[in-house]
Amino acid sequence: MSTTAVESGTGSGTTPTPPGNGASDRARAEQRLGWLLAGPAFVVMLLVTAYPIAQAVYYSLFDYRLTDQENISFIGLNNYAVVLTDQIWWISFAVTVFITVVTVAVELVLGFALALVMMNALQAIRPVLRAAILIPYAVITVVSAFAWQYAFSLDSGFVNSWFSWLPGIAADTDWFGGTYTSLLVICLAEIWKTTPFISLLLLAGLAQVPDVLQEAAKVDGATWWQRMRKVTIPNMKAAIMVALLFRTLDAFRVFDTVFVMTNGANNTETVSFLAYRQTIARVEIGLGSAVSVLLFLSVVIICVGFIKGFKVDLSQARGEN
């Protein structure tokens, strides 16, 4: 192909550039084209998020009840004071943190194990594993929540009759009757659904670890565990961090599962659920907006904290480089 290129000799580039100030002209044209192409997507993203959040910030400063629209009044930061001094907010916050920490920690370990199996599995069964693992990822969260809820429920479930030999589980164990057992089932459903995502990210990370290093460590007589700690994990740190960040942000916003399984009973309300309850159920737009804004701020803080604290290289996450 290169020979033809030389022979025809028409030069390169689709836009022939005149001599002189061509470089800057071309740069300007490229600039314009770039925004022309990327602009619509950019504007749409801003419209669907920036505008609503600005409106949420605005409404959060008002006493605004949907059924009482004549009495909307400006009350400054009062809604925030109400939220932040309310025990419920802090309980929901703690529950959300609990779910986030537990699910992300378990998923990381489990996801790593899954990635290792997929990495080492025989070529022949790899597609089967890949397809299988994608199924939980693709199943609708609400469906997964229903499946797990029914499995554990007293009347339609099978868990109690299958596991009654375990201490603490009897035919009449009421999983949704207590805070911790409810949270356990919620976490199980979340873990089942989202571990595949983490494991695929980790699998990609595993593939990045240079074989040479592994071999060298093997030659040096390192055990499997030593190789894992000294070679594999450090070399896929970036992948781990990206996976952690995304899952943490995702877990912190948990809503569907809680909504379906407990509807917030027994102190299983998460921050997202609390926002939903104030706005949609209680139709207190002002208070609900304040909760929403606080939720948004929490997510931003987590994200910034991650990036600064763990030095997550997001350029990698964005597919730059």
């Binding site: 669907v48 998020t49 505008y51 609503p52 959040i53 600005a54 409106q55 949420a56 409404y59 912190f252 916003r253 809503f255 997202s272 926002a275 939903y276 706005t279 949609i280 737009i285 609900g288 907006s289 929403s292 804004v293 939720l295 948004f296 997510v299």
Partner: peptide
């Protein structure tokens, strides 16, 4: 972005 934050507005 938390979906719930957008839903209300």
């Amino acid at each position: 972005f938390p979906v719930i934050s957008i839903v209300t507005p």
